[in-house]
Amino acid sequence: MTRFLAAAALALLAFDARGAEKKPAAPPEMPLPTVEQLPLPIVPQEQKPAPAAKPPDALPPLARPVRVGVGVAGDLDAVAAGRLTASLRSIAALAPLAKESVALAADRCEADACLLTLGAAQQVDQVLFARVSGGALAVRVLDLSGAKPPDEARLAAPADSAEVRAAAEALACKLLVPAGCTGEAHIDAPGSEIQVDGKPGGPRLTLPVGVHALAVRSGDSLVRRSLPVLHEKPVALVLRRSEAQLALLTPDEVAQRAVVSAEVPAAPRRRWTRTAGYVAAGAGIVAAGIAVAEGVHSRSMLDQAESGYRSNGNVYRPADLANLQSGNSAARAANVLFATGGVLLASGLLLAFAF
């Protein structure tokens, strides 16, 4: 019994000691959110069907293949206008989405309204127009649908027809072909140093269309010339010696100079021997004429002397002897003059035509 009481007393003492220890403070209570603050449940939405693809006819006008009308006007003859039109059509064919190019008779057009009317009549989508007038070259692009405003580029017109075409191609390429346009150049100058626009080049070059500066150095000689690069065909130049100087010539210029040199030979130099020959031949003819006169005079004197001799009984009178002497002298003079004239005439002809 005593043990039981002692154990109970110890248990009470231990409980009091635990109760006396300081307990940690309870965490503050968090308020619950209101109904308005609670997230709304996600409601699945109905998915709308994707819109159907538009047919090709509904695409913008410039997003489908286009036809380009090409026209030229200004200070050009018929041949130059035809060549410029061909050059511009070659550039129009390079435009994105270009289907074909059509030549327009735009030589009388002065305003955009005329060009638009021509383009509508030919059922084209764009008009590419070039004008050479007043020393200026202008290239203009018109969009018949009105989706794009008119665009134009211009520069000073070169004097050479090939350079005009190359410059027009460069302007048209700038307006129609963002990727650029190129052409080929062939330079036949073996053993020479070639530079194009100040940069080293070779005999075969691919360059942007337009007019470039070409320089060829052969030994101590430096030849410069403009290089019109076209898209439709390569440009060729040959280094040749012309009139004791080196020159860069096109094949047409080489052929033209060959024809001129063959048709018009160099005039022969006049030599002193020809003049001396003419003088000697003239003197010979004069001497022969005098010899003939002396011969006639000699025959007349001799005939008179013979006539007097017969009429006087075969005796010469003093007058007959004088006539006889005079006739013989004239005959000797005629013989000498005949010989001298023949020598002079022969010498003159020899000097005039043999030397």
Rank of each mutant, 00 (worst) to 15 (best):
V235E: 10
G289I: 13
R270N: 10
A258F: 06
S300L: 14
L302Q: 14
N323V: 06
A276Y: 09
R225W: 00
V292E: 13
S329K: 07
A267F: 11
A283C: 14
A333W: 04
R271F: 10
E306N: 11
T273W: 06
L230K: 01
T275M: 08
N323C: 13
H212C: 07
T273V: 04
V279C: 04
H297A: 12
S307Y: 08
R225P: 00
R224P: 04
M301A: 15
E306L: 09
P265G: 10
R257E: 01
L302C: 13
A213R: 02
A262Y: 09
A258H: 07
N312E: 13
V235I: 10
G295T: 05
V260E: 14
L321E: 11
T250E: 12
L205W: 01
R299M: 12
G308W: 15
P251C: 05
L324N: 05
D303A: 10
V238Q: 15
G308E: 15
G282Y: 03
A287N: 12
G219V: 02
R204I: 09
A266I: 14
R204V: 13
S307A: 15
R310T: 12
A262M: 10
G295S: 07
A330N: 06
L214Y: 01
R224A: 03
R271M: 14
D303L: 06
A330K: 06
E232T: 08
A287G: 09
E232V: 04
R217E: 06
P268W: 08
K233I: 01
S261A: 15
V259A: 12
H297T: 13
A333M: 04
R317M: 11
V216Y: 00
N314C: 03
H231C: 05
S221Q: 06
V296Q: 10
S300V: 15
P228I: 03
G313D: 11
Y309P: 09
M301I: 08
S261I: 12
Y309A: 07
N328K: 08
E263P: 05
P228T: 01
L246S: 09
A293S: 04
A255S: 11
L222Y: 00
R274G: 13
G277T: 03
S242R: 10
Q245T: 08
W272L: 15
L207G: 00
V209K: 00
V259Y: 04
L249Y: 02
S218C: 05
Q325I: 07
E294Q: 09
D320F: 03
R317N: 13
L246Q: 11
G308S: 15
R271G: 08
A334D: 02
A330Q: 08
P265L: 09
L237M: 09
